[in-house]
Amino acid sequence: IGSLMYASIFGNVSAIIQRLYSGTARYHTQMLRVREFIRFHQIPNPLRQRLEEYFQHAWSYTNGIDMNAVLKGFPECLQADICLHLNRSLLQHCKPFRGATKGCLRALAMKFKTTHAPPGDTLVHAGDLLTALYFISRGSIEILRGDVVVAILGKNDIFGEPLNLYARPGKSNGDVRALTYCDLHKIHRDDLLEVLDMYPEFSDHFWSSLEITFNLRDTNMIPGSPGSTELEGGFSRQRKRKLSFRRRTDKDTEQPGEVSALGPGRAGAGPSSRGRPGGPWGESPSSGPSSPESSEDEGPGRSSSPLRLVPFSSPRPPGEPPGGEPLMEDCEKSSDTCNPLSGAFSGVSNIFSFWGDSRGRQYQELPRCPAPTPSLLNIPLSSPGRRPRGDVESRLDALQRQLNRLETRLSADMATVLQLLQRQMTLVPPAYSAVTTPGPGPTSTSPLLPVSPLPTLTLDSLSQVSQFMACEELPPGAPELPQEGPTRRLSLPGQLGALTSQPLHRHGSDPG
């Protein structure tokens, strides 16, 4: 009997000691992992102490058991019943959930998450997105703005933001810190809205009876308010094209079509300037034949640059190039080494500058006005007194259609001029006259002087055409309008007829 009692007592005591040691061994194993994590990542002392304290409290609170892992091991129907039991206190005593059906309560219970916070733990920081609604079931918390405590909340209090009033989550206007050990039930806004969409009859009752104890939403960050730039940057990543407008005076608003859609830094370009900076079609017209890549860069430059609305530039004389043409100036200075066709295309550029300027006046029909002061630039669209967005969009579309028509007509005119030049060069190729044979009589004449090349004649003739079109064909006081194609086609051969009437002889060394 004594040996039996000794064996039973010894066996029970050893089993008890073994169970104690097993729990202690698990605790030390998990604690060792936490300390190894702290050492590996070199976490500083204040945060390291918070980690160790939280682990110790969580171990004593749950005995080292992962409740979520245990809950996920059950089937979904059983999980709903378990969640309904775990959140029964909240669902029974909170006013917004009263009167809900059994199915609605089960769906809500599945969406709730339980959070346990030790003292000093910050649940929400200032500036964080308010993605959830919090219900306090135990403990107390404090809300701070800077170093000032603005509120202390306790059991059955609710904090967050009214989700039904805002389409997008706002930002917190303060820090939420736990004063004691707290148990909180939180539900994400997407989950709550999903359940309320499934039960629309409960939705009206819920929003009407929901009383948020403390609204954390920062009202200064609401979209459309003066301080909402940061919020707009976070939620409006896919922005449309940006529009900046110059201020319109009362006198300017009476004149229709007073602005032109141009790229940034293009205030001095012609009315047909689009795409790359520098001139019509993204580059100076005089350098068009020598740089074919300008047409390839036109599309990307047009689509990537934001639109700006600026006044037209001052008018340019008909014979003056659009500006920024070092290529043609070098050719004029060193005409001995340049291609003979460069002079002809220089005359073509003069005609283009004249036609572009006159067509700009035809479509816009307003006098040039000086540029406004820099303080009046970049007025935002949302400022008071601005035109409605639809009106601005319609004006932009009208300007775009005008620019497209202008570009089409300029292309047709350019093709006409090039065809005339090619026809003239085919009839009378460039050549130098040879020395004529002296006559049989004693009164022999001296050799004839060489005839100037055709490109120079073409430049003079085209300059005469531009001056003739600019000065004589337009009646005084009438708006400057571009001439039609047949009129220009008839004027060019008439001007060139006198020049080509002389018999030109080919030089023996000319390969053409």
Results as ranks from 00 to 15, higher is better:
residue 163 L to H: 12
residue 378 N to V: 03
residue 378 N to Y: 04
residue 167 A to V: 10
residue 476 P to G: 10
residue 294 S to Q: 15
residue 282 G to T: 08
residue 332 E to P: 09
residue 225 S to Y: 06
residue 219 T to W: 08
residue 134 Y to L: 03
residue 154 G to N: 09
residue 298 E to R: 06
residue 326 P to I: 14
residue 446 S to Q: 12
residue 193 L to Q: 04
residue 251 K to Y: 12
residue 335 S to R: 12
residue 296 E to M: 04
residue 476 P to W: 14
residue 267 A to G: 12
residue 199 Y to V: 02
residue 370 P to K: 09
residue 138 R to Y: 09
residue 161 E to H: 03
residue 198 M to G: 04
residue 250 D to P: 13
residue 221 M to S: 09
residue 280 P to R: 15
residue 415 A to H: 08
residue 229 T to W: 06
residue 419 Q to F: 13
residue 383 S to M: 05
residue 430 P to A: 10
residue 291 S to T: 15
residue 440 P to G: 08
residue 156 N to G: 08
residue 512 G to P: 05
residue 287 S to Q: 15
residue 411 S to F: 13
residue 324 G to F: 14
residue 432 Y to F: 13
residue 159 F to K: 01
residue 362 Q to C: 08
residue 141 I to Y: 04
residue 315 P to F: 11
residue 357 D to I: 07
residue 376 L to N: 06
residue 501 S to T: 10
residue 380 P to R: 06
residue 252 D to Y: 12
residue 476 P to Q: 07
residue 468 F to S: 04
residue 323 G to P: 06
residue 131 T to K: 09
residue 224 G to A: 09
residue 263 G to I: 12
residue 156 N to C: 06
residue 401 R to E: 05
residue 139 G to W: 03
residue 201 E to Y: 03
residue 157 D to M: 06
residue 269 A to N: 12
residue 164 N to W: 07
residue 233 G to T: 11
residue 327 L to S: 11
residue 224 G to H: 10
residue 496 L to H: 11
residue 335 S to L: 07
residue 505 H to P: 09
residue 349 S to A: 10
residue 141 I to E: 01
residue 266 R to Y: 11
residue 194 E to A: 13
residue 192 L to M: 08
residue 458 T to D: 09
residue 419 Q to G: 10
residue 502 Q to I: 07
residue 379 I to L: 06
residue 221 M to E: 12
residue 371 A to W: 09
residue 387 R to D: 11
residue 447 P to W: 04
residue 440 P to C: 15
residue 478 A to T: 08
residue 400 Q to N: 05
residue 212 I to N: 03
residue 475 P to Y: 14
residue 510 D to G: 08
residue 211 E to M: 05
residue 421 L to Y: 13
residue 384 P to T: 14
residue 494 G to S: 10
residue 306 P to D: 15
residue 180 T to N: 08
residue 197 D to A: 10
residue 430 P to I: 15
residue 300 P to C: 09
residue 457 L to I: 10
residue 139 G to I: 01
residue 356 G to E: 10
residue 342 S to F: 12
residue 174 G to A: 12
residue 133 L to S: 02
residue 296 E to I: 10
residue 243 L to S: 11
residue 262 L to E: 13
residue 266 R to D: 14
residue 261 A to V: 12
residue 224 G to D: 12
residue 230 E to L: 09
residue 450 P to Q: 06
residue 180 T to E: 06
residue 422 Q to G: 10
residue 429 P to I: 06
residue 268 G to I: 13
residue 237 R to N: 07
residue 455 P to C: 09
residue 500 T to L: 05
residue 486 P to A: 03
residue 147 D to P: 13
residue 469 M to R: 13
residue 512 G to H: 12
residue 497 G to C: 05
residue 499 L to S: 11
residue 314 S to D: 08
residue 384 P to F: 10
residue 311 P to T: 03
residue 233 G to F: 10
residue 129 L to C: 08
residue 128 D to I: 01
residue 395 R to T: 09
residue 153 L to G: 02
residue 262 L to K: 12
residue 443 T to Q: 12
residue 458 T to L: 08
residue 291 S to N: 12
residue 266 R to M: 11
residue 404 N to P: 03
residue 408 T to A: 06
residue 361 R to M: 15
residue 398 A to Q: 13
residue 346 S to Q: 14
residue 249 T to L: 12
residue 398 A to K: 12
residue 432 Y to C: 14
residue 271 P to H: 04
residue 237 R to I: 13
residue 147 D to I: 01
residue 395 R to W: 09
residue 209 S to P: 01
residue 145 R to P: 01
residue 273 S to C: 01
residue 478 A to G: 10
residue 172 S to W: 01
residue 348 V to Y: 09
residue 436 T to L: 09
residue 184 L to G: 02
residue 464 Q to C: 12
residue 483 Q to G: 11
residue 220 N to F: 08
residue 224 G to P: 12
residue 409 R to Y: 03
residue 414 M to N: 11
residue 407 E to C: 04
residue 452 S to A: 14
residue 509 S to I: 07
residue 146 G to F: 06
residue 239 R to Q: 13
residue 421 L to N: 02
residue 267 A to L: 12
residue 237 R to S: 08
residue 288 G to H: 04
residue 401 R to K: 11
residue 148 V to Q: 09
residue 210 L to E: 02
residue 338 C to N: 13
residue 193 L to E: 10
residue 345 F to L: 09
residue 410 L to P: 04
residue 156 N to A: 04
residue 168 R to M: 04
residue 460 D to L: 05
residue 392 V to Q: 15
residue 258 E to G: 10
residue 334 S to H: 12
residue 160 G to D: 01
residue 374 P to M: 10
residue 287 S to I: 01
residue 142 E to G: 08
residue 432 Y to T: 13
residue 324 G to D: 09
residue 234 G to F: 06
residue 512 G to E: 08
residue 508 G to T: 09
residue 506 R to H: 09
residue 252 D to I: 08
residue 243 L to Y: 14
residue 388 P to E: 13
residue 442 P to A: 09
residue 168 R to Y: 08
residue 141 I to Q: 01
residue 396 L to A: 08
residue 502 Q to E: 14
residue 302 R to P: 13
residue 436 T to C: 03
residue 201 E to N: 07
residue 232 E to L: 08
residue 203 S to W: 04
residue 260 S to D: 14
residue 324 G to L: 10
residue 179 L to I: 08
residue 196 L to E: 02
residue 370 P to Y: 06
residue 352 F to T: 12
residue 339 N to L: 10
residue 332 E to R: 09
residue 198 M to R: 09
residue 163 L to G: 08
residue 400 Q to L: 11
residue 161 E to Q: 03
residue 502 Q to L: 11
residue 329 E to R: 14
residue 504 L to A: 10
residue 397 D to Q: 10
residue 397 D to M: 09
residue 442 P to H: 13
residue 374 P to T: 08
residue 268 G to R: 08
residue 429 P to L: 09
residue 393 E to F: 01
residue 382 S to N: 01
residue 438 P to L: 08
residue 159 F to W: 01
residue 221 M to N: 11
residue 139 G to Y: 03
residue 303 S to W: 10
residue 379 I to Q: 13
